[in-house]
């Protein structure tokens, strides 16, 4: 059986994440929130704007910081999901290859409200090209800011790099523990995957496109 994306989206959406008696959502070994995209966008682009106002060349620093937050996100969130009982129940039975771990996780992402991730090409252990439609980062950017010269989907870029690192640089199939040491091992390796956004809605493109490769950018 191959990865059946719609079945995964429906199954994950059907989990109906909602606050418990404490108003918290413990799941996948994490505390989840159903958060407000505007909030993330305002605080992230405010950081970007502040750095640029201090000195234009600091844009790169802000970008690096925000992408790092995305990598931390994917390490824990994707890692937690891919080692969960829900994954074992819904996705694992469809998995036939290591590449299916990537495709299965992308299907789960498509139940998180982030917009539609679609794998365009996946070269095992080397390269992933993925498009995002309705990226919540770019959509919010387009609404509230002038057209960008640089891409603006930092969470997505960090997330895509993180996914490739979990599957190919680390070994998610061996159910690792998501410790600081393991993070450094797979994200600070010279062979780590880095991602760049090659097209972005915020720059006037019709959708966003992210390429993850081993060569650090």
């Amino acid at each position: 059986m191959a990865i059946h994306e719609r079945a995964i989206i429906e199954a994950v959406s059907g989990l109906g994440f909602a606050g418990n008696e404490e108003g918290l959502i413990p799941a996948f070994g994490l505390y989840l929130t159903k958060h407000f995209a505007d909030y993330y966008n305002r605080i992230s682009y405010a950081l970007l704007g502040d750095f640029i106002r201090r000195a234009p060349e600091l844009e790169e620093d802000a970008r690096a910081l925000l992408i790092e937050a995305g990598r931390v996100c994917s390490f824990h969130t994707f890692g937690g999901i891919m080692t969960s009982v829900e994954w074992d129940a819904v996705v694992r039975p469809m998995i036939e290859s290591r590449e299916d771990w990537v495709l299965g996780m992308v299907a789960v992402v498509n139940a998180l409200g982030w917009g539609r991730w679609e794998v365009k090409s996946l070269e095992a252990n080397e390269r992933l090209v993925l498009t995002v439609h309705d990226s919540y980062e770019a959509t919010g950017y387009v609404r509230d800011y002038p057209r960008a010269k640089e891409p603006r989907c930092y969470l997505a870029a960090g997330g895509v790099a993180g996914l490739m690192n979990l599957v190919y640089q680390g070994d998610i199939t061996a159910r690792p523990t998501f410790s600081e040491a393991y993070y450094l091992e797979i994200f600070r390796s010279p062979r780590t995957f880095a991602a760049r956004e090659t097209r972005c809605l915020a720059m006037g493109d019709s959708c966003c496109e992210i390429v993850a490769e081993r060569d650090p950018i």
Binding site: L30, F36, Y40, A46, L66, E68, A69, G70, C73
Partner: peptide
């Protein structure tokens, strides 16, 4: 308004970054 699922690792890491 768009709602997105995110975990505490991202939320507090992003806040610390800010």
């Amino acid at each position: 308004r768009r709602v997105v699922l995110h975990c505490h690792h991202y939320n507090v890491f992003l806040q610390r970054t800010i």
